[in-house]
Design a binder for these strands. Sequence first.
DNA 1: CCGTATCCCAATAGATACTG
DNA 2: CAGTATCTATTGGGATACGG
Lengths: 124, 124
Amino acid sequence: MTETSTHFKVPVGSSEGAACLGPDGSVAHVTRTLQMINGRWKLPILFRLYAEPSMRTSQLKRDMPGISQKMLTQHLRELERSRLIERRDFGEQPPRVEYKLTEVGRALMPVLTAAKEFSIRHAA
Amino acid sequence: MTETSTHFKVPVGSSEGAACLGPDGSVAHVTRTLQMINGRWKLPILFRLYAEPSMRTSQLKRDMPGISQKMLTQHLRELERSRLIERRDFGEQPPRVEYKLTEVGRALMPVLTAAKEFSIRHAA
DNA sequence: CCGTATCCCAATAGATACTG
DNA sequence: CAGTATCTATTGGGATACGG
């Protein structure tokens, strides 16, 4: 099990009243998006890949002082599973692996920007 | 300590390279917003208060089967501290307390909607 | 009705060591 | 260089009991 699930699961069952309120079935959808970026280093990774066309594993690691190999790989895998980033293994020796944002990953940026704007304007 | 902080803290120090990438100092800001809604029952609560002008504690509890008194109160406190909701104690006997979204809370909705739209369009 | 206090468990993240 | 495997520490969430 290399999955990081957090507590951001949809409240209980499927047709729980809890999961389907707001405009419509909002909670579950919002939760799904938040899941994707929930993790200590997900945003730092995403923003880096947003700024650069692509980055090697070691570049990412150097850019984020404090992250461990384990957490880096783990979060990269999760972001990959979420289809936000793409992994490319060049099959060279020594190993060369690069990551880049997918179209989906780029489509997420407006959401993050909205969250950022909100923080700037309304946060204490 | 009644604070629920989760791991969504900004990566390490203050002027860490990690915290300030993207368009500008995005990570920290986005993180701050995500903090506010990070918690098992935060979204369910917010969406309920979005649908209703105000709700009593017991109403919220009834509407969210599975939530415990403890978690309800805890999350309500945190949302209050984040200025997303307002608490009103009528000082009656038996107790009567009502919660409602603040203006800030309403301002958050577009962000949640953006996240929801993203999920609908791009999630597997 | 509304809130607090405990105890417990599950899930994450960090540190460290090891492999191709 | 890139990734895996362990072990540990922390913490958020659930259950339960109690109090104003």
